[in-house]
């Protein structure tokens, strides 16, 4: 390891420390070997300027991307979550946009948090917002491209969904909660927590805005199967297998669903 690498490893590790560096005698001693003191600051205090910024910058970035989680948790639990997350998953991407990518997975085992299931649903929604926000825009499927397919070809067709679309199967009605929190611009102090309620969403981009629509179980199952590359015929069968009511719904409404999904730009290709 070169001298430069060794110096940079020391500083990189020090800046990710959660507590004031001046309290750690090992860091203080090494800082004195590497960094000049000035008339007003010790070497460790100079390093501390950068350490404070590491936490401020990444906390601010996560707050921008996950305002709903911050609103549910309130300041104290939010700060603990950010601390535990950044310690467990230090930023690796060049872009702050990717900072929260692993937050939903991290929350699955974050037993220290109150309302963890609600927070987890909010994290899934807010990360989906980030993915949809800057995903590529592809032109919607032209209806005539499937009009010429016979019944057999249609059943075996695999439909491509828009990259600016995410399907979310959640346990709580978090979109409404998030909207209320964003409107309130604060924590959940006076807002009641929602009761669990199955919430199946399509989050997608219309024009440049991220919007969502709710789906019933059968159309959600069908669309979710399509998103995994299942053929149209098998996706319909998966939806029908949910029960008699769902099967009847597929039989009766599938053409309407597809017309709506094509109009909204959910489907961008067929192969």
């Amino acid at each position: 390891m070169s001298e430069l690498d060794r110096l940079q490893d020391f500083i990189s590790a020090a800046l990710r420390r959660r507590r004031d560096l001046s309290r750690d005698p090992v860091i203080v001693a090494q800082a004195e070997r590497e960094i000049h003191a000035t008339s007003h600051f010790s070497p460790a205090r100079h390093l501390e300027i950068y350490r404070e910024q590491f936490w401020l910058r990444h906390t601010q970035s996560l707050l921008e991307d996950f305002p709903g989680i911050a609103g549910i948790l309130g300041q104290s639990d939010w700060e603990r979550l950010v601390e535990e997350y950044l310690l467990a998953q230090p930023p690796a991407s060049f872009s702050l946009r990717d900072l929260g990518e692993k937050l939903p997975a991290f929350l699955e085992s974050a037993d220290f948090l109150p309302q963890r299931e609600l927070v987890l649903d909010m994290a899934r929604l807010e990360w989906a917002h980030i993915e949809v926000f800057d995903a590529p825009a592809l032109p919607p499927l032209a209806p005539e491209s499937v009009a010429t397919l016979d019944e057999e070809a249609l059943a075996s067709a695999r439909l491509l969904l828009s990259p600016a679309l995410r399907l979310l199967d959640l346990s709580y009605p978090v979109p409404e909660l998030r909207n209320r929190l964003l409107s309130a611009k604060g924590s959940l102090v006076d807002l009641p927590l929602p009761e669990p309620s199955p919430t199946r969403l399509v989050l997608y981009r219309r024009e440049l805005s991220t919007v969502h629509c709710r789906l019933r179980r059968a159309p959600f199952t069908l669309l979710e199967a399509l998103s995994r590359g299942v053929s149209l015929g098998n996706a319909c069968e998966a939806a029908c297998a949910l029960g008699e009511r769902e099967a009847a719904s597929v039989e009766r409404e599938v053409a309407t669903w597809f017309a709506d999904w094509v109009a909204r730009g959910f489907i961008v290709g067929v192969r």
Partner: peptide, 20 residues
């Protein structure tokens, strides 16, 4: 205040969500 690199346009700032 101090955010190196300047503000970015982020999804978290979106406020025009709507139920379609």
């Amino acid at each position: 205040g101090w955010l190196q690199g300047g503000p970015r346009e982020s999804a978290g700032k979106e406020s025009d969500h709507e139920a379609a």
